[in-house]
Design a protein around this nucleic acid. Structure first.
Lengths: 172, 172
DNA sequence: CGGGATCCGCGACGATACTG
DNA sequence: CAGTATCGTCGCGGATCCCG
């Protein structure tokens, strides 16, 4: 049991978040707001066109929709500068910043999985490569018969190296 | 730089995970496999119809698709029992278990947000956004300095040490 | 000129019916 | 009971047009 919503809307916290940010772009948009590529600095305000080029594949329509949703949920702030070349800047709110642990966890797992990626590059059949991070040269994912199907202790969870280093995908 | 993919497929770890699990149901399916409601025990094997009723709104088609994807990605294991009433059980693999930190973070944030939820129930008292920023600035992510941007002063971030307590989503 | 709203087409998903 | 096939709906990308 977690929280009893007086409205009778019992819900799993995870489901709640997924319901809010589980669509195709919300997390990525927030990620950019966490420091997409200017991770050398604090949390940046991003302009619309910046987000558009930082998120290859997103359309202006969808971007706007996500931005509106996130704003409505209080996760981001939208600032309009009544200048002649219109300028709109988006930034995280304190509430939006609260997903930092999620971002950190995603980054951690993503990094781990990227290492394990077999790399489907046709040019090089690729072998278990273990370049960047030394200490875990797994090189293969769980196949049919994985050695350990039992619960925990597969890997240790690093208390989230937090900070914002997850902007490795500098879109610029 | 983080990971240099020899295929030239540079990618943000977060984007990578979102790309894998960013669809409508993957995370929720995995959540169920983490212990949807039988969190008192270890990670359960779940049968198809269990997942179907544990995930209200999902269709059999989509469930199957997600399950196949997750299996292909090595996150879950599929066991077929050649019995007359067909039985198939799904369970986490070690790799699948690696998203535990993500689940924990989602649960943490979700719980926090659920508390802050104004509760749109007309019968109940509405609680406006309570400024969590009181005085617990324990210097988290952007504590290097706080530039012009007023980095959101989050309340407290618990280092996701918990194991699996997020299974508040009782399947019933 | 940048922000974003509208119309169109595609692909993903839900609901249902059907197969083994 | 598990999974597939079909159809209708909706989210979302793409281009275009409008606003300040």
């Amino acid at each position: 049991m977690s929280q009893l919503d007086p409205c009778g809307d019992f819900q799993c916290p995870i489901q709640f978040v997924v319901d809010l940010l589980g669509n195709k772009w919300s997390i990525l948009v927030l990620k950019e707001l966490f420091g997409g590529d200017s991770h050398g600095d604090s949390f940046p305000k991003r302009r619309t066109h910046e987000l558009l080029k930082a998120l290859p594949g997103i359309s202006t329509k969808t971007l706007t929709m996500r931005l509106r949703e996130l704003e409505e949920q209080g996760l981001i702030k939208r600032e309009i500068y009544p200048e002649i070349p219109p300028r709109v800047e988006y930034s995280l709110t304190p509430k939006g910043y609260q997903i930092q642990p999620v971002m950190a966890a995603l980054h951690q797992v993503g990094s781990k999985w990227l290492e394990q990626e077999p790399c489907v590059c046709p040019l090089q059949e690729i072998q278990p490569f273990e370049p960047i991070v030394a200490g875990k040269g797994n090189g293969r994912v769980a196949d049919e018969n994985t050695p350990n199907n039992s619960p925990p202790s597969d890997d240790k969870f690093d208390p989230i190296t937090e900070t914002r280093e997850w902007s490795a995908a500098a879109t610029d």
